[in-house]
Structure formats: C-alpha cells, structure tokens
C-alpha cells in the first residue's frame, strides 16, 4: 500500500494566537443567533411522519370492522423483548361472519415498556393484523397503564384497507366451492 506523506504545515503566528479562529467562530454563531429556528415546539407542532414510520404497534380491523388477528402468536414468538402476550381463544359459532376463522385472541397485550418498536411483529404477521402506525408518544402513570390491551390496540389501530379478504374467500369456497 502506498503511503502518502502529508506535510503538516506549521501554524502561522496569527493561528497560534487562536484569535482569527475565535473571530470566525463568533461570526458563525452570530449568524445562527439570527437564523430561523430549526426545532419544533413539540406538543403544538407535530413532526411530519414519514411513510414506513414505526410507531406504536396496533391491531387493525378489516374494512368490515372484523378482527383480523387469529392469535397465531407468531408476533409473540418473534418479539425480541417479549413485549407481546396473547391468550388464544376459539371464536364462538354465534358469529356467522367470523366463526369460520375458528381462532382469535381472547386477550392481546403489548407491554409498551418492553416494546422496542422493531416492527418484527408487523413483518411476521401472516394475517396483516398488526401494524406499527404513526402514534409515537405513549405515556402513563403506572406500569399497568403502559400495557396496551386488546381494546386499546384496536382503538389505536382502527381499520386499514385489505387487499386479500383471505377468510372471506375461504368462506365463499366453503359455501360454493369444490365440495363433494
């Protein structure tokens, strides 16, 4: 490897007094003193959230307002800080539009004191039911308050458009499909 020797120039007298540099620095800071402010005044002014932002994980419903999560617990499995805790349950037969899904979460808790906003839960979800959306500010007065339960998760998540309607198709196939 070629070695390039760079001549280190000795400092001039003025440079050794620091004074021109100090003056230059003062000039720079003076410019900033009058420059427009770059910060946001947070609670009133909110930053623009870029697309793909990973905020608080939420559960979303399909456009028909039905729960998408089937409590497969893959997010619970993949969650690095073990923030997600799901109690799976069976969907009772008295929900005609959902009974064919068979399984849904009885309880779904995300401990926001543990969550690291990595988005692996969203990535792993086979039902596109969990999304890290724009909400970035979570606070509470107790540890319990910092655990998002199922109701809160759906409240935060709302409804997102669905491209698949996987289970509706399944039900249609069940009713009109290739039955014997």
């Amino acid at each position: 490897m070629a070695v390039i020797t760079v001549e280190r120039k000795p400092l001039t007298f003025l440079e050794r007094t620091y004074l021109p540099q100090i003056a230059g620095g003062l000039k720079t800071t003076l410019k900033h003193l009058v420059a427009p402010k770059k910060t946001l005044e947070y609670p009133e002014q909110r930053p623009a959230i870029p697309t793909g932002y990973r905020g608080v994980p939420t559960l979303v419903m399909d456009p028909n307002g039905r729960e998408k999560c089937v409590s497969c617990q893959l997010c619970e499995f993949v969650c690095p800080p073990k923030a997600i805790r799901i109690t799976p349950g069976e969907i009772p037969a008295d929900q005609p539009d959902r009974a064919h899904v068979e399984k849904g979460p009885k309880a779904f808790d995300i401990d926001m004191l543990r969550c690291i906003y990595c988005g692996l839960c969203q990535e792993v979800c086979p039902e596109e039911a969990i999304f890290l959306q724009n909400q970035f500010s979570m606070s509470g007065y107790s540890r319990e308050e910092m655990v998002n339960h199922k109701d809160r998760l759906y409240e935060l998540g709302g409804t997102l458009p669905d491209a698949h309607f996987k289970w509706d198709k399944k039900k249609a196939a069940e009713e009109h499909g290739n039955a014997h």
Partner: peptide, 13 residues
C-alpha cells in the same frame, strides 16, 4: 435564551 438562539432553538418560552 442566547444558548438556544445560537443553537437555532427557540429556548425557554
């Protein structure tokens, strides 16, 4: 306040 202005912040307000 001066610190804030020099650092392009609004400072305590």
């Amino acid at each position: 306040k001066v610190a804030a202005w020099i650092q392009d912040r609004p400072g305590p307000n």
